[in-house]
Amino acid sequence: MSRHNVSQPRWAEAADAGAAAAHADTIGYPVALKSQAGVGTMSVAAYSRAEVLDGYDRMMRDASSRHGEVVVEELLHGARIRAETVLLPDGDVCIAAITRTTPGEAGLQASRHCVYAHDALLHNPVIRRLVARTLHALGLRPGVFRIGMQLTLRGPRITDVQGHAPDDLTPVLVKTATGIDLLQVAVDVAAGGTPGLTPKRQRASAVHFAHASVTGRIERIAVTVGPDLQPFLERVVQLKYSGDHVVAMPESYESDALAYGVVVGSSPSDCHTALDRLAQALCVDIAPSATAGQGVRRLAWQNRSTGL
C-alpha cells in the first residue's frame, strides 16, 4: 500500500516490549497496540511510554493476542467509516454503502454502526479514488470487501481491509437501509452472475452493542421494549444471562456484549435517537470481580461514553 501511495497510519512491528516503546516514541503518541493474531483480538490505546509497556504486558497475558508480533500504530483522530465495497469482474468498483462507526471506550472498539442510503460520502471522489487505489495496491480479485478508514484533518487514511463480507450485522443494516443484500451480492460475484447493486430503499439503519463498564458476574439482566419504540425497532437481542461472566471495555470482545439493538428510521438522527431511547430497555446488575471492586453496580444502556 505504501508503494502505491495509499494513505495509512504510520506503524511498525515489535517483537518485545522495549521495541514497542521505541517505535511508539518514534511514531509519536498516542498509539494503538494491535495483535497480528487477527481481527477480534485485543487492541490497546497508549498515551505514554509507560502505557505502551503496560499494554504490551496485558496483550502478552491475553490468550488470543500473545502469539506473534505486536503492531504499534499511529492512533488517528477523526470520524471512523467503512466503505462496503464490491469489486466487479470487469474491474469496476462500487461502494454499496458507507458505515459510520461510533467508537466505544478507549476509542478502539466499535459500539455503534449506522448506514444511510443518502450518505454524502457514497459519491465523494476522494473516497472513491482511495478505495479503488487500495484494491489495486492489494491485487484483489472480484468480491465484496470492507475498507475501513478515518477522516483525519489530512484527509482519509486507510486503517484496515477485510477480504470478506462485513461483520457486526452490517449486512442487516445495508439491506434494511438500502435493500442491497451484500451476502447475495458476494454469491453472485463468486458465481459469475450480475449482482443487484441498485438501491430499493431510502432509509437509515443502525445497531448498538451494549457492553458492561465493569468486569464481573451478571446478577440480573432484563430487556423490556415499550410500544413507543416498535415503529423503529428491527430487532433487539439479549446475548448474556444471569450467572454469565462479562469483561468490561476496553478489554472486552464482541463475545462480551450484553445485548444489541437494530433500529430503522428516515435519517441517521432518527436512528440514534431511537437507540438512545432503547437504552432504557436494558437493565443490568453486575457483581464486580475481585479485581474490579466490591459491591453490585447498577448499569444502564444509556451512556455511550462509558461503553454501554
Rank of each mutant, 00 (worst) to 15 (best):
L229A: 09
Q8P: 00
D168W: 02
H118W: 07
T224H: 13
I218N: 05
T102E: 07
K34L: 05
V172R: 09
G104Q: 09
V144N: 03
P288D: 05
A50G: 07
F145E: 05
S213F: 15
A290D: 14
G107H: 11
R133M: 05
S255W: 00
R80N: 09
E13D: 06
G196N: 12
A15N: 12
R80C: 06
G104V: 11
E84C: 14
T198K: 07
L153T: 15
L53W: 02
Q8Y: 07
A46Q: 03
A190S: 15
G143V: 10
L33Q: 03
N5W: 03
V214S: 06
V44W: 04
N124F: 04
L229V: 06
G28T: 08
A248G: 05
H67L: 10
L282Q: 03
L87A: 04
G28K: 05
A300N: 05
R217K: 05
C94H: 11
V247F: 04
D25H: 11
G179P: 08
D188Y: 00
A17L: 02
P166K: 06
A45S: 14
S2N: 08
P142G: 11
D276V: 01
I81F: 10
E219G: 14
T152C: 09
A110R: 09
H136R: 15
R58P: 00
E69G: 07
P166I: 06
D62Y: 06
D244L: 11
T170R: 02
P231N: 08
G179Y: 04
T291K: 14
